[in-house]
Simulated assay, not measured.
Amino acid sequence: MSTSPLLQRKWVVYVLILLITLIWGYGWVLMKEALRYMGPFSFSALRFGVGSVILFMIMFFMKMKRPPKEQLGHIVIVGLLQTAVVYLLVMYALHFVEAGKSSVLLYSMPIWSSFFAVKLLKEKITITKMVGLGLGVVGLIMIIGWDIFIGQDFSALFGEILIIIAAASWGLANVYYQLKVKGVSKIQVTAYQMGFGTLGITAAAIGMEWGEPIQFNVTSIYYILFTGALASALCFTLWFIVLSMIDIVTATISTLLVPVFGLLFSAVLLGEKITAGVILGSCLILAGIFIAQLPMKKMEQTKSKSLTL
């Protein structure tokens, strides 16, 4: 690709990043509100079911074959870690934790990715990475610890811990993907991992929420379609387009806008309060994620050239 067309498309990249982060940030409000109409596991099963169907339809029209058999087992594990575990924990935790705070805690994921990369991929831990991880951990403590000081009940604290575990699971899924999944396009991996993850979520919904009422109305269907079609299928597809146009580090850093939008949408639409602890903790987490990824920039720029859709 020549330099001139790339420069002409820079504005497209910026628009896509803004659109993705806005939709993901707004999606946290809908995930929280959806609990008024159905159980957390039922909603997640419906949401990712819609997203999976759309992605498989894209694969069908693009005439993409299924991944090699030797890779399917690894993709199943990625799906369980990244879709099933993460959203089972997050959706259940949203019963107790505000949507804005939840988005901040889940997007500590890059910190956990860095930690697992050191342990499993044997990446060297540099001074800047240590500083970044340290800031992130302090930020998490600030968010949770502040709530303890102001007398928050145990259920909210329990929900926050579940979301941190979800963030760690997401980070582990990223590292496992880099370690085990080879020669499979991004859309194939996303479609199949989301499909397998949906099966796990559906099993949990049947086991835990069988017989519980599900209210289908204009509002609840909107929540399902928006988070399934837009926040899941569309945004993941656009995300891969962004990854093919710019380096991974720049793209990943851009996701830091998601918890910012999550906090803003939650404050405006749900009336959630943004405390000093959440603000300070969020700033530390965002700073930690940025600093922890600085040493990876050169390597990620090289990797980005080999990304395929």
Rank of each mutant, 00 (worst) to 15 (best):
I285Y: 09
G27R: 05
I75G: 04
L121W: 09
I164P: 01
I127D: 10
W210Y: 15
I144T: 03
I20F: 06
V189H: 04
A276T: 15
G195N: 02
G200F: 03
M59V: 04
G228I: 06
E160S: 14
F216A: 06
V131M: 07
G197P: 07
I164Q: 00
Y37R: 05
L280C: 14
F56G: 08
L30T: 03
L6M: 09
F149K: 15
S254I: 01
K273P: 13
V76D: 10
I77M: 13
S103F: 01
L230R: 00
T198V: 09
M59L: 11
K69Q: 15
L309F: 11
L199E: 08
L6D: 15
A34V: 06
F265K: 01
S232H: 00
L284K: 10
T302D: 13
K180F: 07
F48T: 04
T83R: 06
L157C: 11
P110G: 00
M296W: 12
L280G: 15
L162Y: 08
G139Q: 10
G136Y: 01
K69R: 15
K186M: 15
K63I: 10
I163W: 07
G277W: 13
Q188C: 07
I148N: 15
V260D: 00
V76I: 14
Y192H: 14
Y176S: 09
L157M: 00
L269T: 12
P5I: 01
T252H: 02
T198G: 10
K119Y: 15
I248W: 08
L157D: 02
